[in-house]
Design a protein around this nucleic acid. Sequence first.
DNA 1: CTGTTAGCGCGTTCAA
DNA 2: TTGAACGCGCTAACAG
Lengths: 320, 320
Amino acid sequence: MITLNDVAKKANVSKMTVSRVINHPEQVRPELREMILNVMTQLDYHPNAAARALVGRRTRVVKLTIFEDMDTTEPYYMMLLAGIANELNQHQYALQIATRNSYEVGECDGYILTGIRQADYAWVERLNQPVVFVGSNRQGYDYVDTNNYQAVWESTRYAAEQGYTHLVFIGIAIAEPFELDRERGFREYVTTHHISAQIIRLANHSHVATAYVKSHWSGFPRNTAFICASDRLAIGVETAIINQGGRVPIEYGIIGFDGVLLNQIAAKRLTTMKQPLEAMGRAAARLLLANINHTDRSRGRHDQEKIIINSRLSVAESTR
Amino acid sequence: MITLNDVAKKANVSKMTVSRVINHPEQVRPELREMILNVMTQLDYHPNAAARALVGRRTRVVKLTIFEDMDTTEPYYMMLLAGIANELNQHQYALQIATRNSYEVGECDGYILTGIRQADYAWVERLNQPVVFVGSNRQGYDYVDTNNYQAVWESTRYAAEQGYTHLVFIGIAIAEPFELDRERGFREYVTTHHISAQIIRLANHSHVATAYVKSHWSGFPRNTAFICASDRLAIGVETAIINQGGRVPIEYGIIGFDGVLLNQIAAKRLTTMKQPLEAMGRAAARLLLANINHTDRSRGRHDQEKIIINSRLSVAESTR
DNA sequence: CTGTTAGCGCGTTCAA
DNA sequence: TTGAACGCGCTAACAG
């Protein structure tokens, strides 16, 4: 293992000078700095994270806490995770995964939280450490989120532009901000453009959507497009349409939300709004790291910071 | 922050004694040990991972490398992950997630590897660090795996015992050990018990299964049960049966494999072979930790160790 | 069985 | 601008 000392000897300086090249490069004469950097790459030197953690009173560990049953979890989190992990790795930080039942063990420098419900906020409050949410919140914590409004607005526009003349938004029956934003995206587009439209709210299960579409089939003329708030709903809609003898995408269009796994089950590959999950993960990690470094210097809460990331429509076979 | 010293002072012993209570409890007089343990809980003492890492020449980080595209990944990994993370947390280890593109950054004490293909073994070889696989391998590395043979054997038995008289195994068309074991489980059961049966191998997509069952419908008499090697295939089979007017589970039975998410899409909740993913994750972590501690003392490779975990049939609505 | 000493690799503080 | 000394929290090795 190469240490600071090894580099120092080879470069004929004290180890402090080498340390400064890493932490306060501006305090070292440029030529000397260059030389030392050279030696460092030559020796393939990597600072020892444990030693830095020890002296810096940092753990160099970030915890990701997922407040949701893993059982029913979508692949969603896996991609988010990848983004977070990648970003943290680059900064010599390790990620620790904490689930509902194990979230007290070990120390860390900060938390990334997701899937939170109202009841969990008390716990968050007591953490007293830097925190970043994935998904919006109204209690003033920093967060990263997708632009739900924009996503559905664009899905709707796409459907309209493809010539579907009746638009149906199938939402999730839950009064959370993310859902309200999605509905708003739909409503604003169809209102502005005077398009025949309706909004339906269902429990987020495919068979519920299937049953609904089946029993209201006469209300969906040809040339209807369904903009769905989740892929589960989209799959359910597709099943119903096919069972009723409707043709996708010629007579009916379907747009899902965040299609990852479920596409492998749909008869036609779903046109779907893709959330940039990897990017969201990276953003959350970066935001948290910034908070950690900031908190070090100045105590006290800063203003809520929000990072909103746009989604992209991935066009496939369920729309024309 | 509570340190060893704080505990030592309060307990009127040297900090070495406290340290021993943690690392070599057998070297401390039982009553003294008890007393110190008390003080430790009283003070809510937690050893500082960084300091231990520093002196122990360990990073206290384990890397999980998933050699597979996250895009198409099943929720599978998420649960595995939870198991690994929980176990590592208990041992003051942090988990780092490495994906295909980021697997060189940072140091660690060992690797948990999964989703590996033939081409990746060269990379594994060069690691030169303790390694544990999730999923079997023939190159002599330790691994944790489900008992694929047992799982399908029991599914098959269950179907037979429920009175389905014709059994069909829908396998995945791929010559990997896991698939061969599953087929073997099916074959041995039906052969031993002289049951009318057939084996079919398909690409692992639900629509492929749907198409196959549809076009061979006349070959599947009433009272047939389909034992499927994946839930995707099971869902596809179910769709076909329903489209053909067959009734589940009265006339036809379906058993899936490892139903996590997909159940939310099936018309009838699938009867499915549940892999104990959390347990597998924990087992993998424990095995790796053992290897890490072992390698510390004695250099050189030991015999391949295998941990095979049985699955459990979760009976739901797609069988009687 | 228990305590003392020394040092892991690094960064802060102070002195040069 | 650079260096020397000290200590972060912990444990291995030795001494008692």
